[in-house]
């Protein structure tokens, strides 16, 4: 609701953001799509012409593809499971009356602010190193043989590192959601004779459903794209090569841009399917 003059001004003010983002999205995207239909090897002859869907077929048929899908799913699924379950429990714990609540909250949130390269390196060296890591010390203390974590148990190790980074995010959002729960609702349920457990199942959990969905969707989008954590720990070895990392290797390491771009298009399609769900939820929120 406004006048014509303010509408014109508003369009002008919106334009730079829209135009710039459109360019930022469309230009590289178009290039990726074009490359994906070409045989394109910058180090070995450059642009070698159109090949139709060959790259798409080759990307899916390569021996690295299914393992990459598998490790992607394991990382995303594992981290989601850990962060959501622990996140709900932590959020409930932090919502209880206690002394020093503010400080505990800060302690719990802190890992989120640690840059990915730092957290990956700290875990890799100071905790998971088979000789000098803290875990190795701990294992030896109990008389066990230290585990070479990132090669023998690479997947659980990566999941542990990434979960540590994302647990604060899940906790913080779920805590915010719990705190928005009207305490009168819980009191009403208590008057109606509901036990603490049934109050949790019938009141708290349904109230959290939306927040959990949002956590799952947003984390999925970010987790599909994790890169630094693998780059500085295993470099994709020992079965930790995710789709993102596979595409990165195809494009920059083996310089097969056509093949990598086809993989990129797959990744974009996958992300967009997830994004659609997220945007539906966020969009509903806009209408209120």
């Amino acid at each position: 609701m406004a006048t014509k003059a303010s509408r014109t001004a508003a369009r002008l003010m919106l334009a730079p953001a829209v135009i710039l983002l459109l360019g930022w999205m469309m230009v590289p995207l178009t290039m990726t799509v074009i490359f994906s239909f070409k045989r394109y090897l910058p180090m070995r002859g450059g642009d070698l012409g159109w090949v139709g869907f060959e790259n798409y077929v080759r990307f899916v048929n390569s021996s690295a593809f299914w393992p990459a899908v598998q490790s992607t799913l394991m990382i995303v699924g594992g981290v989601l499971l850990i962060t959501v379950v622990l996140g709900v429990l932590l959020a409930i714990l932090l919502d209880q009356p206690m002394w020093g609540q503010g400080i505990v909250r800060i302690l719990v949130i802190a890992p989120f602010f640690v840059m990915p390269t730092v957290s990956a390196l700290v875990w890799k060296n100071m905790f998971m190193d088979p000789v000098n890591g803290l875990f190795a010390h701990l294992w030896r203390f109990f008389g066990a043989t230290p585990v070479s974590w990132l090669s023998e148990a690479s997947m659980p190790s990566i999941i542990l590192i990434v979960s540590w980074q994302w647990l604060p995010f899940a906790t913080l959002i779920l805590l915010t959601a719990i705190q928005s729960l009207d305490s009168e609702q819980l009191e009403a349920a208590e008057m109606d004779g509901a036990s603490p457990l049934s109050r949790f199942i019938y009141i708290t959990l349904p109230h959290l459903a939306r927040a959990i969905t949002i956590v799952v969707l947003i984390q999925t989008i970010f987790l599909l794209a994790i890169f630094a954590e693998i780059f500085v720990t295993t470099q994709g070895a020992f079965g930790t090569r995710t789709l993102t990392y596979l595409i990165f290797q195809r494009v920059l390491e083996s310089q097969n841009v056509g093949l990598g771009s086809a993989g990129g298009v797959y990744a974009i399609i996958l992300a967009n399917i997830l994004a659609l769900f997220l945007m539906r939820i966020v969009g509903k929120n806009l209408d209120r």
Partner: peptide, 18 residues
């Protein structure tokens, strides 16, 4: 607004080479 959000979801690796 939703479209802007969707640009954020573009996987970086998909446009790395361009």
């Amino acid at each position: 607004l939703l479209w802007m959000l969707s640009t954020k979801m573009l996987p970086a690796v998909g446009v790395l080479y361009p």
